[in-house]
Structure formats: structure tokens, C-alpha cells
Design a binder for these strands. Structure first.
Lengths: 333, 333
DNA sequence: TAACTTACTGTAAACGTTTACAGTAGGAAG
DNA sequence: CTTCCTACTGTAAACGTTTACAGTAAGTTA
């Protein structure tokens, strides 16, 4: 023990203790071959001094932080929790750490977040945003680290993207119309958001193709959560004229189930309910929620893999993946 | 623009551009007063060069990473999501970033996590663990950064801790016995975990004090999730002899609701159900879940505040907080 | 033997900040 | 006028790594 008591050992200390140069210690730690004779000396010194390489020194010199930043617009939403889980699944197998970015619901929050990434605290960025804006696209374009986009936010082309193929609502509608006929209500989230906009479009087109004007079949909640869903449904005039409800995410579907349950309307026999996202929530609700699977955990895993691939080899061709949504049948429809 | 194209501007560049010393730039950025005349020169240079301070350089020199590490045993559990949200609420108001540690369910994962913190990638640590072990306590004691513990994991005394006062199960039991009598089933999670152990103890004692031997009223799920809950309930011989069920967390309560719903047993009129944690899930389920509020978002906020306080002033006295659980009445009981 | 190759080693210079220290200008006090 | 103080400034030395480079010893080839 050459070290004083309370301060941590550095590579210099290890080198001195093992009687080798600091370069050899560094090389050994980074998996390069060193003379067979000195290997045990280094390992011994490391454990004797309880040496752990300092992240900051490493990051500064190598300009690699070993951190991946994940932006989560709203951590209360189970779909983002599921994506986060997927990202973790992959990162935990590597020596990359996961940074959870601050909430980025608004355009301003998004801009601040993207801006902050210039401070080099992360090597890669997994970007999720509910909102779209030319300023976001512009800021994103100037990003100094590689990024992966999950979702339909519009950005430039030099980026890996993971989308869910359109047609999720069509999938739900086809199922419901076939089973229960055309009296379908669409409970949307705010159409000012990207998913709100897209899912509404999907619904209207799907109705259109069946010769129905869907516009009167849409009710919009102020937010993608239960409270907003309940309040939106409360404003629907005669809910019992509908035979089924498509909800723009699982939380809104949970709201629908609660709403119908308080009205003693049987699900699915009087009104069927179908959600979108197929988060953990779906199998927790009763009746268990039939939902369109957006494969969120998988998307998270894929995003993490993409970013790691690119960090390993920056010349990797940019990938634009589109996941096929899938209907998962449970009890509610 | 004195900089070449693709590499980021450093403080040196700003200093040169503004014709001041690098020390002045640093001081200005860190909010110290500088000569009035040079202030605009610096701001101008910063924006002209689009300068952003480099986190690694900063971290290395100041030995402060501006990062807080939060350990989340299992991100699928809504109670941890809620705690995470609380932590974020506070950190987002500061310039600290949130690191999400890898899953730490097992003892080994906990040890690896605590060990890794010696690499100085975080200034503070918010520790949550489902499991208890002398090795964890020992490793935790040697931690080189301040920590806050949420929960009942046993560690040394020089640490802020946030617990929920015991008596949660008693609270639930008192309510149920009073309303529905003593035929209460306790659906516990694994008693090998800290909450499993404590909640079981709480239940047995609460029953004891009413002169009932509770041991036959306990069924144990293999994990704190819906699937395990369903499977555990499936093994209960004659469920309909019970008038109410206390579930050791909200996920197990969701399992109970689903289980009873498939058996067409009315909740709460035939069997009442009560959960513990009062996560977002409680108000999403139908019937809405009566649950014991563990104030998780608040605990997360408190933990973040504690750690920030200590980073500001390391001499702060260690705080041992105990939150009073509270019954939140909804529909299921 | 010399010349070349192989496989490793150590020295020292970075990376981009913060900060101790010494210095200076200007005003106040005596 | 000198002395002292205040309020700021710039120089230069860290912080703990990684890595370019030059060096060396041993083995191979001719």
C-alpha cells in the first residue's frame, strides 16, 4: 500500500506498485497483450490498491463517455417504460451506461435537450419525441453524436430510424368491423402530437375506404392518459350507439374500460374496446385488453443495437426499419 | 470563426476570440463576476463559436460529474417507475443528469453495481434494492460517493434513508376486518425479498393482535408481478371462503382482480381487494383499486433532494425519514 | 557475424477544464 | 505621497487517462 488513506488509487499508483509503466497498465486494462511476466503483477496491484479507472479521465482522453442518452417524452406512459426496458436489455450486456434525458414533451424541452448533447456527456442518442417542429429538425441535424430515432418525428436522412408501419388503426378497424360492424368510435389523443396526427389519419382513411365518413366518429382527449380519456368520453353524446371503440393508446383504452365499467356497459358484449401499443398494461386490465402490438420492448432493443453498431463502425449504412404492428387478441374485443 | 470546421470549439478558442484569458472565460461561465467590459465579448464569442463546455474536461478537473445514479431493481414494476419520476421531477430543475443503473435484482447484480460506482461516473447514488445481504452492506459501506437509500435494505448509519413506516398491512387489515370481517387472504410476493419479508411480518402480527393465526391465510407468489400472482392464486384451495384479499403490491392486486373477474366473482361485493403502493395502476384498473399509498413519487423527490443537499453541503446531518402510509379508498374495497 | 523483424516497453504529450497563485489597476485611507 | 484594500486578471499547473513515438531485447534470416 503506497497510497494514503482516503483518496482513490490512480493508474500511476498501480504502475508504481507493479513496477511497470503506466502505459502498460493502461494497455493491460484495455485488453492489449502485455509481457506474460508482468500480467500478474498488474492484477495484483490493481486489487491491492482497489483501483478502478476514472471515467472522466478516460472520457476526456478518448472522447468516449460510454454513455447513451435516451429521451423519454413522458415517463408516466407505459409505452416509454417498455422502450426503456428494451434499451436497458441491450446496454446492460455492454459497458455502456444509460442516461435518462429530462422530459421532452414540448418543442422547447426538445430543443434544450438536443442542445445539451453538444456537451459531450453521451456517445449516442436515442430520440423519441411526441412533437414535430422545423426547429427540432434543424437542431437535430447539427447533433455532434450519432442518433437513432424511434417514431415518426421528421429529421434528416443520415440517421437510423425505427418506425411502426402504418396500418395499425386499419388492423384494428378491420377486426372490429368484421366482428361487430361499422359503429366504431375512435378515441384519439391530441392531434397536435405526431402519433395523434398519424393515428387519426389512419382511422379516417380506413373508414373512407369502407365508404364511411369517419370525422364524426372521432373524439379527442387532451392528453394520452386516463384522466383525459375519461373526460373526453364524458363528452360523447350517446356512447351506447357505438358497438366498439378504438383507443389511440393503452392508457386511453384503460380509460374506456373504466368509463364503460362505471356505466355498467359490458365489455366486449355491448361495446368492444381495442387499444394501441400493447404495453404491460394490456394484460393487467380486466377484461384483458385486446391491443395492437407496437413491439416497444423490441423497438428499444433495436434502437440500442443500432446505436452500438454505429459506434463500433461509423460507416455502417443508415437503417430505416419499419416494424409491422400486430393485433393481440385478449378479452376486450 | 477561427475554428476549423468539424471539431468543437474549446474554451481556449473562446478566450482567443474574445481576447481574454481562458480563466476569465471559465469564471464567467461558472457565474463568477468578470469585468463588465469583457462580458459581452465572451458571450459573443461563445455564441459565434457555438461553444459548449466539455463534460469530461469539467468532470476530470473538478471531480464532479453532475450525474446522479438511480438503481432500479426492476423497471417493469410501476412503483419504480413512479419513484423514477419523482427523482426526475427534482433533477430536471437542476443541471444534474439522471443515470439509470442496470437492473439490480440479485445480490450479484447489486454488488456489481455498487462496485462500478467507484469509477466516478456519478456524484451521488440513490439506492433501491429488493434484496438484503451482508456483502451488499459491506460493499455499500465502502462507497466513495454519498448515497440515499429508499426502502428497508440494511446499510450502515452514515447515509440518508427514506422508509415507509411499518403498519401498512395493519392499515389495510383494520379497514378490511372492520368492513368485511376476518376472512382475509394475504397474497404476498417472495418472502426472500425485503418487502416480501416485511409485509408478511406485518400481516402475521396484525392478525396475531386480533387473536388469529395468520399463517394459513398467506399465499406467496414467486415474484411481484401479475403472472406470478395469477399462478399463486390458482393454487389457493377454496378462494370463495375468503371475504377479502390484501395484495403485497399493486401488480399482485391486478392479478387478483383478473383472477376474480375470470371466476365471475364480484369485486368488492363478494371479495374485496386491496393493494399496496398506490401506483398509477390503481386508478387505471377496474374496479379502481383501493390501495395503501406508499407515496412513491414523493419518496423519489425526497431522495433527489437529500442527495442534492448533501452534495451542496457534505456536513448535513444524516436524515432518517419515515413516511406514513395512507389508505386510498377506491372501488375494490 | 550483421541486418532485419517481431513483440513488447516506457516516456511524454495530449484531451478541456478549473483554480491556486501572483500580479495589477484603481480607489480609499492615512 | 505612501500604504492598504478591493476587485479583478492571466499564467500555469493540475485532474487521470490514452496513445504516438522511440527504444530495446530477442528471435530469425542470410
Amino acid at each position: 500500500m503506497t497510497r494514503s488513506n482516503k483518496t482513490r488509487a490512480t493508474m500511476h499508483d498501480v504502475a508504481r506498485e507493479a513496477n511497470v509503466s503506466i502505459a502498460s497498465v493502461s494497455r493491460f486494462i484495455n485488453g492489449q497483450t502485455v509481457r506474460e511476466e508482468i500480467e500478474p503483477r498488474i492484477t495484483k496491484a490493481i486489487s491491492a490498491l482497489n483501483f478502478k479507472p476514472n471515467s472522466a479521465g478516460r472520457a476526456l482522453r478518448a472522447s468516449k463517455t460510454q454513455q447513451i442518452c435516451l429521451s423519454v417524452p413522458d415517463i408516466s406512459n407505459p409505452v416509454y417504460q417498455t422502450i426503456t426496458k428494451g434499451v436497458q436489455n441491450i446496454l446492460n450486456k455492454t459497458d455502456y451506461r444509460l442516461m435518462l434525458a429530462p422530459r421532452n414533451l414540448s418543442v422547447e424541452e426538445n430543443l434544450a435537450l438536443i442542445d445539451s448533447l453538444d456537451s459531450n456527456y453521451a456517445d449516442g442518442f436515442i430520440f423519441l419525441s411526441l412533437v414535430d417542429d422545423p426547429r427540432i429538425r434543424k437542431a437535430f441535424m447539427k447533433l455532434s453524436i450519432p442518433a437513432v430515432v424511434i417514431g415518426n418525428v421528421e429529421v434528416h436522412e443520415e440517421v437510423d430510424t425505427i418506425k411502426v408501419a402504418s396500418g395499425a388503426v386499419e388492423l384494428a378497424l378491420a377486426y372490429l368491423v368484421n366482428k361487430y360492424g361499422g359503429d366504431v368510435l375512435f378515441l384519439n389523443g391530441p392531434s397536435s402530437t405526431i402519433p395523434g396526427r398519424n393515428r387519426k389519419k389512419g382511422f379516417l382513411e380506413a373508414m373512407q375506404s369502407r365508404g364511411i365518413d369517419g370525422t364524426k366518429h372521432v373524439v379527442e382527449a387532451e392528453s394520452f392518459n386516463v384522466e383525459a380519456g375519461l373526460s373526453a368520453l364524458g363528452k360523447v353524446k350517446n356512447i351506447s350507439t357505438y358497438r366498439s371503440i378504438i383507443c389511440a393508446n393503452d392508457l386511453l383504452a384503460a380509460a374506456a374500460l373504466r368509463f364503460l365499467s362505471t356505466l355498467k356497459i359490458d365489455v366486449p358484449n355491448k361495446i368492444a374496446v381495442i387499444g394501441i401499443d400493447n404495453t404491460d398494461l394490456a394484460s393487467v386490465l380486466s377484461p384483458a385488453l385486446t391491443s395492437i402490438d407496437y413491439k416497444s420492448e423490441f423497438r428499444g432493443e433495436l434502437a440500442a443495437k443500432f446505436i452500438l453498431d454505429r459506434l463500433n463502425d461509423p460507416t455502417t449504412a443508415y437503417r430505416k426499419i419499419s416494424i409491422a404492428p400486430e393485433l393481440v387478441e385478449r378479452e376486450s374485443a
